[in-house]
Amino acid sequence: MSPSATISEATFTITPMKKSSNDKHDYGAIVSDIDLNNINDIDVRHLADAIWTHKVIVVKGQKGLAPIKQWDLEDCFLNIAKHEVVGIPGAENVRLIGKGFQGEDHYGIKNKNITKPLSHDWHEKELPQDEFEKGNTRFQRWHMDAPLYGRDPAWFTTLRCIKRPTEPQVNIRWDDGSGLSMKVEPGLTAFISNVQMYEMMTEDEKKMADHSWVEYAPHPYMWIGDCKGNSNGLGLVSQGKEKELENLGDFDPKDIKTYPMVWVNPVTGEKAFQVHGICARRLFIRSSPTEEPRIVEDLVEIRKLLKIIQERVLKPEYILIPSLEEGDIVMWANYQMFHTAIDYPDWFGPRTMHQANIASSAGPVGPVPIPV
């Protein structure tokens, strides 16, 4: 049952996002008539339900939101369940992310110029700089916001648009031999639904995924620190560049994360194929609760298996890239979605965003228990 099923109705308005005739994504909503500076406990619960239900929401009209209030909202989300980034002074858990000059004084951050590159240092096949300067770009890295070591992933992430360029459009290229591309406004975030990904699986694949689990590497982002990604932003190129575990420094085996392949939405009951393939070190494959799992440690095999399943949803018609006006906040369910940044040339202008999430006090639950 929804946590808000027995409390008063929400005071805000939820409207499904408009779709074109070509769009096949089945998620996304607009939330209006709400002031996040003065949100009450009941509406916090309804807002959490809205994220679980619609997976990605854009909360309109939050231009005057105080940074600390964005963090307070994340903290409230956590209580229901009971990093180049720079912290905002007075609200250090709200992180400044973006591109270019952030102003002489941005909430106490003085003369900050963000120059950290995105796509060009991550993909194995680089995008030529002259093509990038003409507005051609790629999805940077499809991921969920999750440490995958020591702490459980955040339920939700919130990203507030302070400033971004709105033109000209960028041309996102897959550059993977598919010939796929799509044009969008610059400075936005793209989403794919791992619920739709699960629904595209065959019955045999679903049976396997429902009963299987993933072991992630210790300090996973250090482990893949020398690796390169595929041109479409999904997954790694297998080059044997993963660090040896003994070169990762100290780690506690009890902090290594093992999660089900499939995560169940606590509000809707939907299933998501939620496997962060770039950090997966072992798969435990079985198709029933009593079957002895097959342990897959070959990273080439792991990535091949995941690629077959995950690339099905990586098509323009299944990708949502919601437009944001200054002050809008996009919120999404980390337990159901992958998202990615999309870079653009510097000459388009600066981008300023405030991002916040908080580790959950309750980790993901699969459709059947896993023996860990």
Rank of each mutant, 00 (worst) to 15 (best):
E297F: 00
V330E: 12
N247Q: 13
C227H: 03
A50T: 15
Q129P: 00
E325L: 10
K55P: 03
E326L: 01
D41L: 13
D346I: 10
D298V: 08
G235R: 05
I42H: 03
D298G: 07
A91L: 14
E9Y: 00
G179W: 01
R160I: 00
G235Y: 00
P266I: 10
G103W: 09
V170Q: 06
K19W: 02
D23Q: 11
Q239A: 12
F348Q: 14
K315D: 05
K24P: 00
G135Y: 03
L148N: 05
I319H: 01
C161L: 01
D23I: 02
D121I: 15
D252K: 10
S119V: 13
P168F: 05
I224Q: 02
I321T: 14
L324S: 03
Q310N: 12
I57P: 02
E325D: 15
V44E: 07
V195D: 04
I295H: 02
A154N: 12
P293Q: 11
N136P: 02
P369D: 14
A66V: 11
W71M: 13
A5L: 12
M200F: 09
H123Y: 06
S4E: 09
E167M: 07
L299W: 05
K206R: 15
F338H: 13
T157Y: 00
H123T: 07
R141Q: 13
E297W: 00
